[in-house]
Each structure stands twice: as structure tokens, then as C-alpha cells.
């Protein structure tokens, strides 16, 4: 039975409302997590600042351009952080057998599983990302227009699909190997690459980070549209198309694992 997008939107808000209500009962945890999130992002910016105290540019990229890339990577990581965070718990649910409950509900398993958790602290990261990009945007004296803002939103949304796709694939490895923690933590390490210009790597890694593990699309390629508008690489314009393809592939792999899930027998 096919159901419309409206039905799923309505049900999504109903489910996350429950989650947010239960989170609100741990107010101290929420505040500390928010501070922790912003502190992490701040530390990343401080490391850049320290490096650029010694070197004016790195391969032709200056401090503000790096801050732009960094901010962009934080923004594109936000949807994965906020809406797909339940991926991190997938391994416990699969291991303990709790996952079977998602398999017997009359809605899409992937949708239901992801909608259960909304991670509010991701919004702290989003705020920091926006602040960094705005700061860099002003310092670099980039032009502001309705078109550029719309383009930025499109670029950020497309880039976020890649982050979600990698998270999905890393998390769903637990359907086959039980413990996916290290795959997830590897995906986090890889995500750290996103804040650096892809051009610093050698051609083999550049190819790898473009077509196999699409880290370049999380920040570098889409950012080129704004940072170097006179020489945008062709591939940057493919960000939305590739984003949808990668997201779809990750969804298919995730579902393949979920549909083959047998439970633990208890």
C-alpha cells in the first residue's frame, strides 16, 4: 500500500514530538551536550587559527576560505546529526533483538527507525556552521543575492545527502558483522577530511574521495560555487544528482540488511 508524503510528514512530527518530550526531562544533559557540541566545533576552528598563525596560506587557500569549508561541512552534517542519529544505536538494537519491533510495523522500516530520534544538539552545530560561513562570507567579500542564498541552500541540502549516505552504510554493517561501532567511528574520522580542500590529496585519494567515498561533496565541491565562482569545477554542479544517487544506494543497502533481519529468537 502506497502512502503519500503528507501522511509520512504528519506521522514524523508525531513520533519526534514524543522523543523531544522525553529529552526535555533531562534538561542538564541537553544543555551540557549543546555546550559540548559547540566546544568541539570551536576547537576545530582554533586548530585552523593556530596553523594559520604560522602559514598565511595552505596551497593557495587562506584562513577565511578554510573557515568557509569548515562551516559548510558542519552545516551539511546537521541533518545526519539531527535526524539520522538513531543509526548510532542500531547495533545495540540489532544485537539485543529489539530491532524486530520495527519490522512488524505497517510503515517503512527505515523511515520509522530514523524518525524515532531527533538529536537536538545537532542544532548547536548548525548554528556554529552558519556563523562560520557568514563570518567567512563577509571577510572574503563574496557577493550576496537572492540567487546565491538559494544556491547555498540547495548546495547544503545536497551535500548533506552524502553525509547521511555514509552514516547509513557504516551503521547497517551491523546487520552482517554485529558490531558496527568501529565502522561508524571510521566514518566519523573520514568525515573529518571533509573540512580540508580535496586538492591537498594525491590523485588516487582524490578519485577515491570523489566517486567511492564521496567526502569531497560534503563541503569542498559545493563550496567552490561560492569561493571560486570564476573557476567552478564541472563536478560541483553534479552535487545534487550524485547526492540523490548515493543516498538511494545507502538506503537500498540498509533496507537489504533490515529485511533480512531474523531477530535473536527471544
Amino acid at each position: 500500500m502506497k502512502r503519500g508524503i503528507l501522511y509520512y510528514t504528519r506521522i514524523y512530527f508525531k513520533i519526534i514530538a514524543q522523543d523531544i518530550k522525553s529529552k526535555m526531562s533531562y534538561r542538564a544533559d541537553f544543555i551540557i551536550s549543546m555546550i559540548g557540541m559547540i566546544a568541539t566545533n570551536l576547537a576545530g576552528a582554533i586548530s585552523f587559527w593556530i596553523i594559520f598563525q604560522n602559514f598565511p596560506t595552505v596551497q593557495g587557500w587562506n584562513f577565511y576560505e578554510m573557515i568557509f569549508l569548515y562551516g559548510f561541512s558542519l552545516i551539511s552534517a546537521t541533518p545526519a546529526q539531527c535526524m539520522f542519529d538513531n543509526n548510532w544505536d542500531l547495533r545495540y538494537k540489532v544485537f539485543s533483538g529489539d530491532f524486530i519491533k520495527y519490522c512488524v510495523r505497517p510503515i517503512n522500516i527505515f523511515f520509522y527507525y530514523m524518525s524515532e530520534i531527533f538529536d537536538v544538539k545537532g542544532l548547536g552545530q548548525f548554528a556554529f556552521g552558519i556563523a562560520s560561513v557568514v563570518f567567512a562570507w563577509i571577510k572574503l567579500e563574496l557577493s550576496v543575492s537572492v540567487l546565491s542564498i538559494l544556491l547555498f541552500i540547495l548546495a547544503a541540502v545536497s551535500a548533506s545527502l552524502f553525509v547521511i549516505a555514509i552514516l547509513n552504510v557504516a551503521a547497517c554493517t551491523c546487520f552482517w558483522i554485529m558490531n558496527s561501532f568501529f565502522a561508524l567511528s571510521l566514518s566519523n574520522t573520514l568525515r573529518d577530511y571533509a573540512k580540508y580542500p580535496i586538492t591537498i590529496f594525491n590523485p588516487i585519494l582524490r578519485f577515491l574521495f570523489t566517486f567511492i567515498i564521496p567526502i569531497g561533496f560534503m563541503s569542498f565541491y559545493p563550496s567552490q560555487i561560492f569561493l571560486r565562482p570564476e573557476s567552478v569545477p564541472l563536478i560541483s554542479w553534479f552535487t545534487p544528482v550524485f547526492g540523490i544517487i548515493f543516498f538511494y544506494i545507502s538506503y537500498k543497502i540498509w533496507m537489504k540488511g533490515a529485511l533480512a533481519y531474523n531477530g535473536t529468537g527471544s
Binding site: I32, I35, M37, A39, T40
Partner: peptide, 18 residues
């Protein structure tokens, strides 16, 4: 005191790492 692990731990990691 806080009943929060994630936030406290990430702050520690950030401070120690840097």
C-alpha cells in the same frame, strides 16, 4: 552530578586533544 555522558566526554576530548 550531571547524568550526562556524551556532552561531558566530548568536552574532555576536545580540551585534551587541543
Amino acid at each position: 552530578y550531571t547524568q550526562s555522558i556524551w556532552g561531558i566526554n566530548i568536552m574532555k576530548e576536545v580540551i585534551v586533544g587541543l
